[in-house]
């Protein structure tokens, strides 16, 4: 069986990805999924989808973040289940509850604080100068702080920070 939702917060999960109820377990998504094909722990019976959906607590699974949202499952699904949407909902729950990998939290903070996901290296600065490229530093990143405040992201990050501080004390 490909999909058997044991997730304890099942209803909350279905709220964010209702189409999952239409899945008739044909497995076409898994055939196209690069994570199932190349992830170390998977095979045609124990697929990435199965691993995530049969877990009692999918947002706790770090594997969740292997999905590169390539949309192949979305393109081939005969039932329009939209698995990437379901994965996205699970990732959001994982992020809110402090279970996203630290690399993801750092990336989010980097974008909000600097306007860039990847920092500029000295080598790149030198290369930019050699190639006579105009300087690169996003302006008005204050806007991103305002956005994070208004969407509730700032609050989520504060809660995560407080939670981590408590855990370390």
């Amino acid at each position: 069986m490909l999909l058997s939702i044991k997730f304890q917060a099942r209803n909350r999960f279905l709220e964010r990805g209702k189409a999952v109820e239409k899945c008739f377990k044909c497995g076409t998504c898994a055939l196209m999924c690069p994570v199932t094909r190349y992830g170390e722990d998977y095979n045609l019976r124990e697929t990435f989808m199965y691993d995530i959906f049969s877990s009692e607590e999918p947002p706790a699974k770090q594997n969740l973040w292997s999905c590169s949202v390539c949309y192949k499952c979305y393109e081939v699904c005969p039932q329009d289940v939209n698995p990437p949407k379901v994965f996205k909902a699970l990732k959001e729950i994982a992020f809110e509850t402090g279970r996203a990998p630290l690399s993801v939290v750092s990336l989010v903070k980097s974008v909000i604080h600097t306007g860039m996901a990847f920092p500029m290296s000295d080598a790149s600065r030198r290369m930019r100068a050699q190639l006579n490229l105009p300087s690169f530093a996003p302006k008005d990143v204050d806007d991103l702080g305002k956005i994070a405040k208004n969407t509730g992201l700032e609050k989520k990050l504060d809660i995560l920070k407080a939670k981590r501080t408590n855990e370390h004390e």
Binding site: S68, V108, V111
Partner: peptide, 19 residues
């Protein structure tokens, strides 16, 4: 010059779609 990171459709979107 005011353009920032897009932000990325894999990890950032996963973490917080609204932002």
């Amino acid at each position: 010059d005011e353009f920032t990171c897009c932000a990325d459709p894999i990890q950032f979107r996963g973490a917080d779609e609204l932002t």
